[in-house]
Design a protein around this nucleic acid. Structure first.
Lengths: 253, 253
DNA sequence: TAGGCTAACTTGTCTGACAAGCAGATCAAT
DNA sequence: ATTGATCTGCTTGTCAGACAAGTTAGCCTA
């Protein structure tokens, strides 16, 4: 079943209130450090109960826009909204152009991660990469779904960088494209040879990382990312060439 | 006044409840898609009022762990917590090691951004980079604070990549180190020549980007990042050398 | 003037209630 | 027997009022 466009939810009162206050903050109407109106004032202003206002403020607290102290009031944070990073904002939903931008970001970190993984991977890391690689091999042979294994493979590479922040970011960005991997591993994808092609790229990445060759790993990851982008219809002409270090250059064929 | 260690806040009831449920989800006790206990059940279970439970769930909704439908109940999201990315988690606060990891992530994206900016920048982009650059020059000359200008400069470079996602991520990561830039622009920083050194690196970055030389821009950014890391006491020995493309290599001195 | 004290105010929590919406059961009709 | 509508209990969303806990600012006293 093709996914149905999610019906516009009936606007929740608390959401309306929180979005309004969020807009105040983002537009600079309420500068960092200033005190928000009291809950009683806001509830009167918006014409809703205090419970709704509290729920709205609770959401703003969770997203790092404000913080509140009992007895004192609620205050706009120093760097509102910068405590967490989100790609698909509810205010400006991600279009096709945004997808290309996010993929370029993924391209940057994944190629760097592959190079780092080649230099830092332990034998245990390699084992954790080999497992999803085998699952993908089987998926290609049996023409089954390898989407999850694909995801796991990239996460395993990120884990080999020994950088938890990088790992979490790659996991985060990668999950944004979880759905995009389906066309590769679908029946059509198998028939068109997309799954097989992707798997060949994965094998190259693994071999380079196993060999400890950061240069080759970066190049293999670069090719995989460019091809993956192509498979989901993203133009990569103007991308940075995920370049190699001068002393790595002679290792290329 | 040296900043005082923030005293442990008196545990908010709603925070306790939301952290507990968050842990349930992260530990897999509650799988994606399953229905949470009703608010009445939870309030009885935790021994708090329904208002507290509602506030806790509201927080979890904001962070993308659960979603709720009126009349039906609250359900664990398909990819709980993956709707937003945060570096300093409240559960495991960022230590010095984490700072190094985050800085490496910043290093990866900032060097890539510099290379992209050199290839894509418009004259308007250059003007927006020149402005904070001038402010920093003045700060060096007058031994004043250039922290904000420093931040603005890096954001202006990111903006020149013409990639909003990359811009937002660099702004996000850069702000994590806003406080770290203070030692460079403090009175001691000026006296020790740190501000002057940083400014020289900035000038090199700007010149390379203005010249449209992606290779030189990447190298200038690499040097700046490594030096900036050194200034705040981060070991960079095992970092990836932010390499150059083969065809860019001859441009190096 | 300095310091303590009080009073008003604000957020945090509790209780009870009703409205809006959902899911399963019941039941009638074809 | 299957389908369709209706009904009923349950759950979340919203409201109102109240008290507890904590803060702020002004007053008052020494």
């Amino acid at each position: 079943m093709p996914d149905i466009a999610r019906v516009a939810r009936p606007s929740q009162l608390s959401e309306t209130v929180s979005k309004t206050i969020e807009k105040w903050i983002l537009d600079g109407v309420m500068a960092p450090g200033v005190k928000l109106p009291t809950e009683k004032t806001l509830s009167a202003e918006f014409g809703v109960s205090r419970a709704v206002v509290r729920e709205a403020i609770s959401r703003l607290k969770a997203e790092g826009y404000v913080s509140s102290r009992q007895g004192a009031g609620a205050f706009v944070e120093a760097r509102p909204g910068q405590s967490s990073f989100r790609l698909a904002d509810a205010l400006d939903p991600a279009g096709p152009a945004a997808t290309a931008h996010i993929f370029e970001l993924r391209y940057i970190v994944e190629t760097a991660a592959a190079a780092l993984a080649a230099r830092r991977r332990t034998t245990q890391n390699l084992a954790r990469m080999r497992e999803p690689l085998m699952r993908m091999r089987r998926a290609v042979a049996e023409q089954t779904d390898g989407t999850q294994a694909d995801d796991d493979f990239h996460v395993a590479i990120a884990a080999a960088t020994n950088n938890p922040a990088l790992l979490r970011f790659i996991r985060f960005v990668g999950h944004q494209f979880f759905a995009s991997r389906v066309p590769t591993w679908s029946a059509e994808g198998h028939a068109a040879g997309r799954a097989e092609a992707a798997q060949a790229e994965h094998e190259h990445m693994f071999d380079a990382i196993a060999a400890g060759d950061g240069c080759a790993a970066r190049e293999a990851a670069r090719i995989h990312m460019v091809e993956a982008a192509r498979r989901i219809g993203i133009n990569t002409d103007h991308w940075d060439p995920a370049p190699l270090a001068p002393w790595e250059e002679e290792a290329l064929p």
